[in-house]
Simulated assay, not measured.
Amino acid sequence: MRGVPPAVFPRRLLVLLGISLLVVSCRWGGSDDTGGERPPGAPTGVTAEAGSATSVHVMWNTVATEVSHYEVYRGTTKVKEVPGSEHMVDVPRLRPATTYVFTVRARDADGRLGPRSREVRATTPGADTADGTAPTRPAELRGRAVGSGAAQLSWSASTDDRGVVSYDVYQGGTKIHSVGGNQRAAVVTGLRPGTRYAFTVRARDAADNLSPPGATVRLATTGGADGRATAPTGFRAGSERSDGAHHLVLDWVPPRVDGVITTYEVRLDGRVATSLVYGGDAPRDRATYRFYVGREAGVTHRVRIRAMLPDGTWGGWSAERTVTTGARR
């Protein structure tokens, strides 16, 4: 690490945070010498939610390395295979009122299959075969571009005689996403800069009755990399001293996007210092991180943080904070 004392930024550091394993790796100097021989890593941020009495919507975070496709398993059975550019899928032909376990694996272009993700469970609701009434269409659909690569959508609730189980989001005529029936908003990521998009939303009940689409919302992403709405919020930084050394203590609220944020990057004094990768249950409300910066008091640092979004793209940087070692938080 050029010009940086090894004690300040260790090359590999394992920290146990509650039940989450946090991997911190130095980003300065050196390189991965594996020559691409390793298989892809396990997908993180996997979630599963019932879409109807006979289907489940599975989502995951894009693996950072190049992936040919993802394989989705129900128990030990492979049930779906999707291109590496996608990170969600609907699993149909399930039984009503049944709990299922799903995992996801990534395969690279050379055929190497990575390890399974953590298991996630979803329970389909009971079916009413006599239910032939579709939910009402979602109303008051609103949308806005979130910088150059995402859009934020919201709508009012549909009504149904048995209850809405999920909402499906369409880009043009293609279904691209699904959220639970108790949600009224979605963030669509992975969009192209400077591009116009048209979105609609449809409601689905347990019997798989699909509402008519609501009104179309049209928007255009910006041409630059604005990402403020995908940046961590409430970012705070302070200094603590223990065992004769000074540490920076950071805390923040993860971006509100569909999916789980498992990876962050910390920028210290104008340079990317470390990556934080949560290997277990990543924080969804407020996250914290503490790291060593030296033994000298009165040193001023500038720090900010950003998150990798579930589609594999980086969100916006948080506000920058200035903190001096030895100063009260």
Results as ranks from 00 to 15, higher is better:
205 D>G: 04
259 G>E: 13
182 N>G: 02
263 T>Q: 13
209 N>T: 02
247 H>Y: 06
299 V>C: 01
260 V>I: 14
231 A>T: 12
310 P>N: 05
191 L>K: 00
223 G>H: 04
311 D>N: 11
193 P>V: 08
288 T>Q: 13
242 S>M: 01
196 R>F: 04
261 I>R: 15
267 R>C: 07
177 H>Y: 08
222 T>H: 08
253 V>M: 12
240 E>R: 11
255 P>C: 11
324 T>P: 15
281 D>V: 06
214 G>W: 10
197 Y>H: 08
255 P>H: 13
188 V>E: 03
242 S>K: 10
199 F>W: 06
270 G>W: 10
208 D>K: 10
200 T>Q: 05
179 V>L: 01
232 P>M: 06
234 G>R: 07
251 D>R: 10
287 A>W: 05
270 G>P: 01
226 D>F: 10
321 R>P: 05
322 T>K: 06
183 Q>N: 10
323 V>D: 10
185 A>L: 14
184 R>H: 03
235 F>G: 14
311 D>Q: 04
324 T>K: 12
259 G>K: 07
298 G>M: 13
304 R>D: 15
302 R>L: 03
237 A>G: 04
272 V>P: 13
192 R>N: 12
249 V>L: 07
198 A>H: 02
248 L>K: 15
203 A>T: 02
305 I>D: 06
255 P>V: 15
286 R>A: 08
258 D>F: 03
315 G>F: 09
206 A>G: 04
304 R>E: 10
303 V>S: 07
250 L>K: 02
288 T>L: 09
268 L>S: 10
260 V>F: 05
243 D>E: 09
191 L>G: 01
239 S>P: 00
321 R>Q: 09
183 Q>C: 06
292 Y>A: 14
213 P>W: 12
222 T>E: 14
297 A>W: 06
242 S>L: 01
301 H>S: 02
316 G>F: 08
293 V>N: 13
286 R>V: 08
313 T>D: 04
267 R>V: 09
322 T>L: 03
269 D>H: 12
258 D>C: 05
263 T>F: 09
311 D>Y: 06
308 M>G: 01
227 G>F: 13
190 G>C: 01
267 R>M: 06
301 H>V: 05
265 E>V: 15
179 V>I: 03
275 S>N: 10
298 G>H: 00
276 L>A: 06
311 D>P: 11
309 L>M: 03
221 T>A: 06
254 P>V: 15
211 S>N: 13
288 T>A: 00
252 W>G: 12
186 A>F: 02
196 R>Y: 09
216 T>W: 03
299 V>Y: 07
192 R>P: 12
277 V>N: 02
208 D>C: 03
235 F>Y: 08
284 R>Q: 11
277 V>K: 14
241 R>H: 11
181 G>A: 07
195 T>S: 07
261 I>K: 13
278 Y>D: 07
244 G>P: 05
205 D>T: 08
177 H>E: 09
256 R>A: 11
201 V>G: 02
262 T>L: 15
194 G>E: 09
256 R>G: 00
227 G>W: 03
296 E>P: 15
288 T>G: 14
325 T>Q: 04
285 D>G: 08
274 T>Q: 14
294 G>P: 04
227 G>R: 09
210 L>D: 04
238 G>I: 14
298 G>R: 15
252 W>N: 06
278 Y>F: 13
185 A>M: 11
220 A>V: 08
283 P>C: 02
